[in-house]
């Protein structure tokens, strides 16, 4: 039974991929700019995916922590360490939620840097075409369309980064306050 379902899923996936390729090919044939726009959007989303969902989840969990809701620490530790063994060795279970979220956010930093660098290169290329520093009737509009498509996930990444930074700083302030409270009670 499981096998049949697996095969059905695979066939559906293959059909979806074939259909997608067909639609893209049709778009390329009719309008290269539209195709470039779609490719720029999908391609850059592929690289932005980890950042978008990472920053989004950090913002979500941090705001939940600030509001005093229960946050599953193991779930966050999984994102910081690659395996439960590594999490154990690094003693992640001893750390607080806010600390783990901060670690997660700084682990996303190199991906963010690489993503912005890639976007900047494409943007630079588009600006050079726009200002006629280099010119090509064929590639100019295509590069511009690619950049516009890529700009959508980039704005999302940027917005979620700002948002996660805001909630994380709130969460850290709350964590420090809790720590000081505990110290006073001990005395």
């Amino acid at each position: 039974m499981e096998r049949i379902i697996w095969w059905i899923a695979l066939i559906l996936f293959a059909v979806a991929v074939a259909l997608g390729l067909f639609v893209l090919a049709a778009a390329v044939a009719s309008n290269p700019e539209t195709a470039a726009f779609v490719f720029g959007f999908l391609g850059f989303w592929l690289f932005a995916n980890r950042l978008i969902f990472g920053f989004g989840q950090i913002a979500n969990l941090a705001s939940a922590f600030v509001e005093g809701e229960e946050v599953n620490k193991e779930e966050v530790a999984e994102k910081v360490a690659k395996s439960p063994e590594e999490a154990k060795l690094r003693r992640l279970e001893e750390l607080g939620v806010a600390t783990l979220l901060a670690m997660w956010r700084s682990s996303l930093e190199p991906f963010k840097y690489a993503y912005y660098f890639g976007f900047f290169l494409l943007f630079l290329f588009a600006v050079m075409f726009e200002l006629n520093i280099i010119s090509s009737i064929v590639f100019g509009p295509v590069v511009e369309a690619l950049t516009l498509g890529a700009a959508i996930p980039t704005v999302l990444v940027w917005g979620l980064e700002l948002l996660s930074g805001y909630y994380l700083s709130k969460a850290l302030i709350k964590a420090v306050q809790e720590l000081e409270k505990e110290k006073k009670e001990e005395k």
Binding site: E33, T34, F37, E144, A145, L148, A151, I152, V155, W158, G159, L162, L163, Y166
Partner: peptide, 20 residues
């Protein structure tokens, strides 16, 4: 933050529409 991102998105949409 949301208003800022919203404005940027608006301008981006404008740019895309103008381009096409």
């Amino acid at each position: 933050v949301l208003i800022l991102v919203g404005f940027v998105m608006l301008f981006l949409g404008w740019a895309i529409g103008t381009f096409f």
